[in-house]
Design a protein around this nucleic acid. Structure first.
Lengths: 262, 262
DNA sequence: CGGGAGGTTGACAATCGTCAATCAGAGTGG
DNA sequence: CCACTCTGATTGACGATTGTCAACCTCCCG
């Protein structure tokens, strides 16, 4: 219980924290961001933040809880293309593109802030540092999508899932939401399946195998404990470069977790 | 032979054309873009434009030819995450992110322009329309990655390949590089496999099946003719929304090819 | 004419999906 | 407190899409 939602004096604070992770902001940038007009909304699990095809009037920031971005294909299957956590601007693209090419749905209950799209854009162009921070955010997003394409396209089930567990581990820690070696998965095995291009049954089997191999422990179905982070990262072919973390954070879990580009 | 490379008086012209597709630029924006300092380089097929792990000094624009963005996974397999054509800024992300999280390799011989990264960034922040155009470009990129995640994660081989063929069709046409129903694939079946998360053998079989079903004809191995575009789009579960085309262009191939969001 | 890259094909293997049953845990009403 | 219910997790049997291996073919080019 060390980390709690702030008393909501500054609801948009998680967004500011996220934005200034990679791009320095000065005090006036920060207060301009915090002063953005917005409506806070409480959502339940499964509620939609954005529906595919929506014409966007707002950009939404996730203040607490978890959400996914997803697309539905012709035969009704779903693909989750990203998992969002606290502080992340969940549909920045809508601010400039207009029509949502995918849906955003809550994974758990949570709070979102809805910011009128023109306010976001205005601020981005009035304040170079803010604009730069948002652009960088967009680019890192892109990098993560590329890694997901790769994960799904060229890794087997075991590797895919180990990879996802490692990504979670680092991102949760970064968002201040848990220990990197011991966290609670905010999603069902079906949702894991939709994130990895597998079926729920196969996800189940793969998780059990990872557990049988001693790579993870699960006290409950969702509680993941990583015994040897480095070993899991090896199995998951996980290199954190695509997250574009700051130098210090890449190696925060285990001292060796650093760039390993060829 | 109606469309040829310009006499190189304005080498960056394809980039300008691409950028102003979705965001209006005025004459001064255009000339500022064309005046960007750059070096033009001729590359052969298989040459690398950027290598994974490179610290980027330049952003590269593809002036002619085709290139792919790709990642290599632990067991040596390759995943192609995007295919780039004329006018596209191939590594805009490097301008802001610094370390390349993936490689860019030429598919065919072609010309690239290398622009110092700080010049690109400077212009983006000096000229709102230019900045906006680039940001939109980044966002559309993201949208395409999401579609690829979905394509690879939740569609079968037949659907995946049909989808890719449709994407090609529209994009080639848009870049002024061919008829949408009759074009030359700039890639081998192995490269198609690396783009779709399949094996070359299976790509081959699937192409033959598409041909046997009368959905495509192939006069040579690479020359694709689409008999009924609409039918192929159906098979490929292809809806052009994710490309964020201008209203007119979405339906340019066949009158029905318009938004079909639920 | 020879070499090489890429395309094609068949036989076989295996990862992963489907189907369906059962189990476990949380919440609910009586 | 206890049936009841619902969602999600687990398991087994079986099937199929896709991968692997290896051979051969075809075209292009020096």
């Amino acid at each position: 219980m060390t980390t709690q939602d702030k008393p909501s004096a500054a609801p948009l604070e998680p967004m500011v924290r996220k934005l200034e992770y990679r791009q320095q902001l000065d005090a006036s940038d920060r207060s301009a961001l915090l002063a953005l007009p917005h409506k806070v909304k409480l959502l339940e699990a499964h509620d939609y933040v954005v529906r595919q095809g929506d014409r966007a009037e707002f950009s939404c920031v996730l203040l607490s809880g978890f959400a996914v971005r997803q697309k539905i294909v012709g035969n009704g299957y779903r693909q989750i293309v990203a998992i969002q956590m606290k502080g992340e601007i969940v549909d920045l693209q809508n601010s400039l593109l207009g029509i949502a090419d995918h849906a955003v749905q809550m994974l758990t209950a949570g709070k979102i802030a809805m910011i009128p799209r023109e306010e976001i854009v205005r601020l981005a162009f009035e304040r170079p540092a803010v604009g730069r921070a948002m652009w960088i955010d967009t680019l890192v997003d892109g990098s993560m999508f590329r890694e997901w394409v790769t994960n799904i396209g060229r890794r087997d089930a075991r590797t895919r899932i180990a990879h996802l567990l490692c990504e979670f581990s680092l991102r949760l820690k970064l968002a201040g939401l848990g220990e990197p070696t011991n966290y609670e998965l905010p999603m069902t095995q079906e949702q894991l399946a939709d994130s990895t291009g597998l079926t729920p049954v196969h996800v189940n089997r793969t998780l059990k195998m990872l557990e049988a191999d001693g790579l993870i422990q699960r006290t409950s179905a969702r509680a993941i404990t990583i015994g040897d982070w480095r070993k899991l990262a090896d199995v998951g072919d996980f290199q954190s470069g695509y997250l574009h973390l700051r130098p210090g954070d890449a190696g925060a879990v285990h001292s060796q977790e650093v760039g390993e580009f060829a």
